[in-house]
Structures are given as C-alpha cells and as structure tokens.
C-alpha cells in the first residue's frame, strides 16, 4: 500500500555536488516506481517530533531499493539533515512511491523533452534511467538549468549518456557561472526555444524545479505554441511568481 509508512535502511550515501547528496534506501520487501514519482520521507526526533517532506525517486535498485537525491536548502528543516547528518546504517521512514501524472512510462511512444532546474533534474533522471533500462527508442532529451558547472547533479552519468549510443542530448543553461566559451545568464525564451524539441514535434514535456522556474518556463512554452495538455509540471516549492 502506498499510503502506509515503511522502514528503509540507508545503505549508501554519496555527494553529487557540494550541496546535494544521493541516498540509497533498501526495504525488507520489493519496491517499484515509475519514472517521475515521489516518496514522502518522515523524520522523527528523539522526543517524538516528526517532519515530513516529499522527494522524487531518482532511480530504482531492483528489487528492493530506490534512491533519492536531496539538495540542501540552507535554512531548511529537513534537507540539511538528510544531506549532512544522516549516516549510512541509519533508518528512515518512507511512504510511497506515489503519483500517476508526472510520470513517464516505457510504453509511451511520443518524443520527450525534459526541462529541469537545479534539483528538479531528479525525477527527470528517473525517466532517463527508465528509458535506458527499457531500451526505449523514442527520442528523449534534457535541458538542465544550473547555477554553474559545479552544481550539476549526476554530472558523470550525464556525460556518459551524452557519449553513448544512441546519445542522450543534454543542453545546459548556466545562470551564474559557465565553463569557458558558454554564455551565462538567466533562461529566456530566446535561449530556451532553439535548444528544445520544437512545437511541431509535439513532444511530451516534463518541467520540474523551484516553483518560480516551473511557472516561468511553462508559460513560455504555452506562448510558443506547445500543446498545453502535453506539458506536465512538478513544483518543488520556494519563492518565485508562486508566493
């Protein structure tokens, strides 16, 4: 049942960037997930106080494991604990995976454009991994907006996917700091549109990231003629137009 809490062992923890960490969780029973779903994680303090937050599933470790990737929000209640303090061998409580809308199924046949900002890449990576694992031949590409090269989550894996056959096309947008020869600056329709599948391809579009990012990008796409019902979004929170 997706709505009951179950206990996970934290079996591995690795930093993806200076502020983002992937946690591998193992369960006593099988667990499965469709690319794009999320879980709720519950922490309980020694005095019984609890806090719950949602995290996208980053990938599965069949048959009994899955991974999440958490970006530390400096003033956050839960994310600093998951990124800095939690150690391998401890346990967590999890509910899910849940979600039947912001998901990519290997049986989907249309081209896919993934657009992620910051930690919003996590569920998109789950879709990429599921696409690879299934040997799907539908075109899938990723546009990933990051502060700078050092903020790229899954960097090594994305490089390998770009170089593999068939390659996963990945476009980076650098908002603060760029490698030599690459432009720096906020995303705009002018920089976005040439780097994603065109409206004529009628792609399924998945946009994920902080609320402001998702709001802005989704509105541009609608304006540019992408089919509204083909655009699926996941808003992580934070400020922006949303608040």
């Amino acid at each position: 049942m997706s709505s009951t809490w179950r206990t996970a062992d934290v079996v591995e923890a690795r930093f993806e960037t200076a502020t983002a960490r992937t946690l591998a969780l193992q369960f006593p029973e099988p667990v499965s997930s469709i690319g794009g779903q999320h879980v709720d994680i519950r922490l309980t303090a020694p005095d019984g106080y609890t806090a719950v937050r949602s995290f996208s599933v980053a990938g599965t470790l069949p048959p009994t494991g899955l991974e999440i990737t958490v970006e530390e929000l400096e003033d956050g209640e839960v994310s600093p604990y998951l990124v800095r303090d939690l150690t391998v061998g401890e346990q967590l409580e999890m509910r899910g995976p849940v979600g039947g809308w912001f998901v990519w199924q290997p049986s989907d046949t249309s081209p896919v454009q993934l657009i992620g900002g910051g930690s919003g890449v996590v569920p998109l990576m789950a879709m990429v991994r599921s696409h690879r694992a299934a040997g799907s031949t539908v075109p899938m590409q990723l546009l990933y907006s990051v502060r700078g090269p050092s903020s790229i989550i899954y960097r090594g894996e994305l490089e390998k996917l770009e170089a593999s056959s068939p390659p996963l096309p990945v476009e980076y947008v650098y908002t603060r700091e760029a490698p030599p020869g690459e432009p720096v600056g906020r995303l705009s329709p002018a920089t976005l549109m040439p780097r994603i599948l065109p409206p004529a391809a009628d792609p399924a579009v998945f946009i994920c990231g902080a609320t402001g990012f998702v709001e802005t990008v989704a509105a541009w796409l609608v304006e540019a003629g992408y089919t509204e019902s083909r655009i699926k979004t996941e808003r992580y929170g934070g400020t922006g137009d949303g608040s």
């Binding site: 303090a45 609890t50 303090d85 967590l92």
Partner: peptide
Amino acid sequence: MGIISSGFRGRRNKDQ
C-alpha cells in the same frame, strides 16, 4: 512511534 533519527532536532512549529 516511528524510527528515531537521533541527530534530528527539527524546527518544532508542530505542536500547534
């Protein structure tokens, strides 16, 4: 009672 995270304190605006 759930699994205890001994290092977790939380912000405790909960008992409201």
